[in-house]
Simulated assay, not measured.
Amino acid sequence: MARTKQTGIRTEKDGSYRVDAKYRGQRLFKRGFSLYQEAEQWLMEAKIGISRLDSEQRIPVTLDQAAARYVKEKGKINSPSLKNDISMLKPAIAVIGSLTLDEINNETVKPFIDFRLKQRLKKKTINYTIGLIRTICNLAADEWRFENGLTWLEKAPKITLLDEDDKRPPRPITWNEQEKILQQLPEHLRNMVLFDLNTGLREDVVCSLRWDWELKINLHPNLPVSVFVIPRVNVKGRKSERIVVCNSVAQSIVESQRGLHAEAVFTYWRPRKGEDKVDLKHQPVNFINNTAWQKGVKRAGVEDLHVHDLRHTVGMRLRLTEVGERTQDVILWHSNKSMNSHYAIAQLREIYDALEGIARPGHEEETLNLHAMIRQAQIRAVGKVTQKSRSNKKAA
């Protein structure tokens, strides 16, 4: 970008102008000026605003600048959502980042919403970014202040969230579907999926499971059970540690994995002609939702299945076996004010017994899966099945 005659005003590649200057220790930044004179006028007015701080004048602050402060403050407290927040804010900054905070409202945010809808993103995803913008505006109106004591924004705008009418319903699977899926997966994914269907863990926790998190506890006479204590850094929200109690099926999978890798519980290996399995180095698995998973569920006839639906399946099966709601919450790590991080042997035994009740098909014959029917109706209406993909997904 070429520097123009006025210090702090630059020409963009598309011919527009942006202001990026410092005045009395304050950064002045704004994009999207179609004329040089407009940029110059804005810069002059901003400088006048700084000069009038003592007379209670606010400096115009852009969404770009405010977002930068938000990210910086989140980084200082090592927020678990920081990486996701940055990813969600980037498209908004690209489209409406040059707006000053007092210019933000439903109408001025609409170009960003339209841009994301054209990318065929779910409204829940778009709402996440809108929520971040609302949070930034609230901080600017309540907490962030200039040297003269004035807040960055006089009053936070009311930005309406989208109606999430495109929300995908849960899609738990039947025992028959489970058998078909497992038959179509490679061994390492089959073990991970079956483990997930017997513990209800999130995908990232299954993939990150480590041997040094394991404890062996006798929950019943002559029945040592693996209990994994998950560090809170690996728990969504990072509020506290959580536990994973293995039922008989999960335990058998753990034992089959033992000794394959020094740290990771779940691994994969790529055999080559003439080489034996034990001679190859096992590598940790980063995702369940990779190419092998997507091809496998397609061959099994459940192309619309997401990995997170395995967790929904556990919840459904626990309810069918009449497991208490509080025990369900503990197993699925649902937030509950009555829960604590101290577990007695009796409680671990209760969790084990509940999970053992879903280890194999019960007496109830699953002849109807309402969620699956709803999902199939949606597929017929849309005419296309979508699977969440990863840019770095690996063939397995």
Rank of each mutant, 00 (worst) to 15 (best):
V233W: 00
N138A: 10
T321W: 09
W211M: 09
K47E: 06
A141P: 12
Q178D: 03
V205H: 03
I136Y: 14
K281W: 00
I113A: 03
N286C: 14
E56I: 07
H342N: 10
L318N: 05
C137D: 09
L219C: 02
W269C: 07
A359G: 00
N138R: 12
A67D: 05
A94Q: 07
L89M: 14
D54C: 02
T108N: 13
N234D: 01
A92E: 01
A250F: 05
Q65I: 06
A66P: 07
E107H: 11
G315H: 01
V330F: 02
A300E: 13
L260N: 03
N105V: 10
Y23G: 01
R171A: 05
G32T: 09
E203K: 02
E214T: 08
W152L: 00
P172G: 15
M88H: 10
P186E: 12
I136F: 13
K124H: 09
H220R: 15
R311A: 05
T7Y: 09
D54V: 11
L121P: 08
K236S: 00
E214W: 00
I130M: 08
G357I: 02
Y268T: 10
E366F: 09
I230L: 05
E322R: 11
L280K: 06
T321A: 10
A346M: 11
T135M: 15
A372N: 15
F33D: 04
R258F: 00
L219S: 08
K13L: 01
W269M: 09
A264L: 01
T151H: 07
L305Y: 11
I374V: 09
I59R: 08
K277W: 15
N290K: 05
I351K: 14
E56H: 13
Q37A: 10
V19C: 11
A292G: 03
H306K: 11
K337E: 06
I130A: 02
A250C: 01
T7G: 10
V307P: 04
K216S: 01
P224C: 12
T4L: 12
N105E: 11
K236W: 02
A346T: 13
L355Q: 13
V330Y: 05
A354V: 04
R120C: 13
I59G: 08
I351M: 11
